[in-house]
Amino acid sequence: MMNKACIHIPLMILLYSSLLGAQPRCPQAISIGLHEFGLFFHKNKGIDADLVQELARRSRCEFNIQVLIRAHIWQELKNGSLMMSVSGLQAPEREQFVYFSEPYLIQKNMAVLPAAIAAQYPEPKDFLAAPKLRWGKVKSFLHGEQLEPFIRQLVSQQRIDEAQDSQQLFEWLSSGKVQGIFAHPSAYTYYLRSIAFETRPAIRDWAPADRGIAARLIFSKQHFNTQDIQAWNALLREIRDDGTLERILGRYLPDFEVQRILNHPLAAGQNKSPKSSK
């Protein structure tokens, strides 16, 4: 049985909206799935929770947050029992059943490994050549075009362990169950601080050509249409352009990381195309 928690956006927030704000269609309460993901969402707080609250305020839509593991979120979006989610990576197989918004965050996956492992196996090819080493990932997470071939090779060698969420993934890294993972700065910044590691893991860029992962809002095609997505995109651009997104990010991330996200050419408001590809 799915472990599901619900959080209701306060009524006063739902009733208040900027007169100039975009007004997407919201015929009923919108069920939206959030998942454990470090500074994005942990214990009902984080970047994505604050973004949903701002979307509710401006759209006047009622949001019913459901806290699920990531794999279940994709399942429920596909069958229509969940209407929206956050921090989604665009992929052809997913576009069969969901729409994606413009990106609102761009972050890059980095390799996180115990320091001794990083020293002995400094590159992906070195890790692949060591059959006793295991890699961890969150079930249903994608890592971008530059890193997925590495993951596929490990899958073919049966050297992947799939965690339910990011908390469990970092716990496995701490305990030695796995010897490497990929993670965004917003994830490892949180978990390396909150989980006890005997020695701080090393952070390595194993995909220098990777421009980063585009986080997008996700909409079930059973509940939304393309016109709806245009309205939500307009709202995202408004949240960015008036400085609200910068304030949200600044609550959780250092200023240099905030500016890197906001100035990325793929970020909402800078690139209007929804085609670029968690």
Rank of each mutant, 00 (worst) to 15 (best):
N3H: 14
A5P: 01
I9L: 11
L14W: 10
S17F: 14
S17E: 11
L19I: 15
G21R: 15
C26K: 10
Q28V: 06
Q28M: 14
S31R: 15
E36F: 14
I47V: 15
I47G: 14
D50F: 14
L51V: 14
V52H: 13
Q53C: 09
A56M: 11
R57T: 14
F63W: 10
F63H: 09
N64I: 12
W74K: 10
L77Y: 13
S81I: 10
V86N: 03
A91R: 11
R94T: 02
E95L: 07
S101Q: 06
S101M: 05
S101W: 08
Y104G: 02
I106N: 08
I106H: 04
Q107H: 05
K108Q: 04
V112N: 02
V112P: 02
L113T: 02
A115N: 02
A119Q: 13
E123Y: 12
E123M: 10
K125E: 10
F127Q: 02
F127D: 01
L128C: 04
A129C: 05
A130H: 09
K132W: 08
S140D: 04
F141I: 12
H143Y: 15
H143A: 03
G144W: 07
E145H: 10
Q146E: 12
I151F: 12
R152T: 13
Q153G: 02
Q153L: 09
L154K: 03
R159Y: 03
I160E: 01
D161H: 11
D161A: 05
E162D: 01
S166H: 01
S166V: 08
S166D: 01
Q168Y: 01
L173V: 00
G176Q: 00
V178W: 00
V178D: 00
Q179K: 01
G180F: 04
G180Q: 00
I181Y: 02
P185D: 00
P185R: 04
Y188H: 05
L192F: 04
A202T: 02
D205N: 11
P208E: 03
P208Q: 05
A214W: 02
S220R: 05
H223A: 08
T226W: 05
Q227T: 07
Q227G: 06
I229D: 00
A231Y: 08
A231H: 10
A231C: 04
A231K: 14
W232Q: 03
L235A: 08
L236R: 10
R240Q: 07
G243E: 09
E246K: 15
G250R: 12
F256V: 15
F256D: 13
V258S: 09
R260T: 09
N263W: 07
N263L: 13
H264V: 05
H264E: 04
P265V: 13
L266Y: 14
G269R: 08
S273L: 06
K275M: 02
K275W: 05
K275T: 07
S276I: 11
S276P: 00
